[in-house]
């Protein structure tokens, strides 16, 4: 008796499953074209550093035009370009300019694109305000933070530095700031820094740690330093042309290198011209760039750079 009732329930159940399976395989594949230019949809992918900005742009745009569906991924600058040049995305976020070999792939696929700078990302090395160190060379940063570093005292870096033990503070290995330091500033093959430091994902913890410990040093995004200039001292960086103080200006004119880098979005020209949604999103993005950069905690573009970005944007439409 029981057995029969189970069977009666099961048979139509499985039949329904099979039906539903075949139904969705057929109908939905037809009406909703994927790939080339879906109206009302914008696909963004790329750098996880730029992600907060593109995400904020999507959110703010939603308040104005609820019908534009924006998806933003964060599969990394390289992965982003791969999808971008395979025509799978409309816009690619990048924390570095496109490489020649990536550009070649795009060209081969017949994809014309435009590079728009959206903000500047800068790291700041900070120390306890009483420490008598003002400037580090890039080599000293590598010596201090490199994966094999055993440096324990400031005078190991330079005999003229005070005899003071170093306490290190830095972001956790998941963060984009860590990746930037490890891969681009130190440039070690392992893409890592030394591991024996106090790490926190919360930049406020790092600020408090460095401000409250004698001989302490740490690094984080420039905007956090800007909010805490009273309690911290920022180190100038010497990359071969003398010591350069971190500031919005030095970050943007390229002299505060290698601790500052421009952030870009790459726009597919054809998608911008054909897909109203892409045009709406990009125009909105650039129009509200200062506000979006602030949400993403990056240095907004100077008037001059913003002018360049605007004229590059106008160039796509023509």
């Amino acid at each position: 008796m029981k057995l029969t009732s189970i069977r009666r329930a099961l048979v139509p159940g499985i039949a329904a499953l099979a039906l539903a399976l075949s139904a969705c395989g057929g109908s939905d594949a037809g009406d909703d074209t994927s790939g080339d230019g879906v109206s009302g949809k914008v696909a963004v992918d790329g750098s996880s550093t730029v992600f907060p900005m593109s995400d904020a742009a999507a959110e703010l745009l939603l308040e104005e035009t609820p019908d534009v569906d924006v998806t933003v991924g964060e599969s990394g600058t390289g992965g982003g370009f791969e999808a971008f040049c395979a025509d799978k995305t409309d816009i690619s976020d990048a924390s570095r300019p496109i490489k020649d070999e990536e550009a070649a792939i795009c060209e081969e696929a017949g994809i014309d694109y435009t590079e728009l700078q959206v903000a500047t990302d800068a790291l700041t090395m900070v120390v306890h305000p009483d420490l008598a160190v003002d400037c580090l060379t890039v080599d000293q940063i590598i010596q201090l933070w490199g994966p094999d570093s055993k440096v324990k005292n400031w005078n190991e870096l330079d005999p003229s530095f005070p005899d003071q033990e170093i306490s290190l503070y830095g972001p956790g290995t998941d963060s984009g700031t860590y990746d930037y330091m490890a891969a681009d500033v130190i440039g070690a093959e392992s893409e890592s820094t030394r591991a024996d430091y106090q790490s926190s994902e919360d930049d406020n913890v790092l600020v408090q740690g460095v401000a409250g410990t004698e001989g302490a040093t740490g690094y984080f995004g420039y905007t956090y330093y800007e909010e805490n200039t009273d309690s911290l001292k920022a180190l100038s960086i010497d990359s071969g042309n003398g010591c350069v103080e971190p500031s919005a200006e030095t970050a943007q004119d390229g002299s505060y290198t290698p601790l500052a880098r421009p952030l870009f979005i790459y726009v597919n020209n054809a998608k911008y011209n054909d897909n109203e949604a892409v045009k709406t999103y990009v125009d909105f993005y650039i129009e509200n760039l200062a506000e979006i950069a602030e949400v993403g905690k990056f240095i907004p573009l100077s008037d001059e750079l913003y002018g360049e970005t605007q004229s590059a944007l106008e160039g796509i439409g023509s």
Binding site: A29, D32, V70, T71, G73
Partner: peptide, 14 residues
Amino acid sequence: GLAGSVRFDPTGVM
């Protein structure tokens, strides 16, 4: 390749 940020409800398998 699922996106990290989506602000609309799914409407179908596509």
